[in-house]
């Protein structure tokens, strides 16, 4: 882990405490509202939401069509929406195109369907390399994209927030929507992983 990611300097905790206390004194923030927001992102909003969206797109052709046309409206059908989700875009992997999402300028990410981004997505290494050497980067993630397949990198520079619809793995025709959702990993919805057939459990981790 590079130094700039997990190091928690002693000063930060103190500074946050001071800020929170001051803003609370001034009536600018309600600590209970902070508790609710933390609970939301730690326990309710996360990649399981996106996995449900993907599984539904795999099993419901009309939903898939609506999702690709207007992802914001389509995921709202499942009850998902909110901050960083006002302009969602779903991009679909096919036999010819592999999509990869990045935000080179900061850390834009589709919160309502994927939750808050992992550290690596916000890291300088990922942000700097995804647009220039996506294939080399993906190799480090254990993913080799064949030369005949186009790699399409989405740099989230405006209000659009992207999620990848991974390809449905072979051997899943008999699976229910719920079983399919269990196969869908966070990384497959960013584009740094694909979903292996269910027998290859090693690849199906988040």
């Amino acid at each position: 882990m590079s130094a700039n990611h997990t190091r928690a300097p002693t000063g930060a905790a103190l500074r946050v405490k001071a800020l929170e206390a001051l803003l609370e004194d001034k009536g600018m923030v309600d600590p209970a509202a902070i508790d609710r927001i933390i609970d939301l992102y730690e326990n309710k909003i996360g990649p399981r939401n996106g996995a449900r969206v993907v599984a539904k797109a795999w099993t419901d052709a009309a939903f898939r069509k609506r999702l690709l046309a207007d992802a914001t409206a389509a995921v709202a059908e499942l009850g998902y929406g909110g901050p960083e989700g006002g302009h969602l875009v779903a991009v679909e992997n096919t036999a010819r195109v592999h999509n990869l999402v990045v935000c080179t300028l900061c850390s834009c990410y589709p919160w309502p369907v994927l939750g808050l981004p992992p550290m690596w997505y916000k890291s300088f290494a990922y942000r700097s390399r995804a647009v220039r050497d996506p294939r080399g980067l993906l190799k480090e993630f254990g993913l080799e994209i064949p030369e005949r397949v186009e790699v399409r990198v989405w740099d989230s520079s405006a209000e659009q927030r992207y999620m990848v619809i991974p390809r449905r793995p072979a051997g899943t025709a008999a699976m229910s929507e719920q079983e399919l959702a269990a196969l869908v990993t966070r990384d497959s919805m960013i584009g740094t992983a694909v979903i292996a057939p269910p027998s290859h459990k090693a690849f199906a981790r988040s």
């Binding site: 882990m1 590079s2 990611h5 997990t6 928690a8 930060a12 905790a13 946050v16 405490k17 800020l19 929170e20 803003l23 923030v29 509202a33 902070i34 508790d35 609710r36 927001i37 933390i38 992102y41 730690e42 996360g46 939750g115 808050l116 992992p118 550290m119 690596w120 890291s123 300088f124 290494a125 990922y126 700097s128 390399r129 980067l137 480090e140 993630f141």
Partner: peptide
């Protein structure tokens, strides 16, 4: 110059309480 992408298995949403408080704030 930023090196390889370092990933963390089973990464928590926040790595310490001050991060969570700041996000909520």
């Amino acid at each position: 110059g930023f090196g390889p992408v370092m990933r963390e298995e089973h990464e928590p949403v926040f790595h310490s309480r001050w991060e969570a408080r700041l996000f909520g704030l």
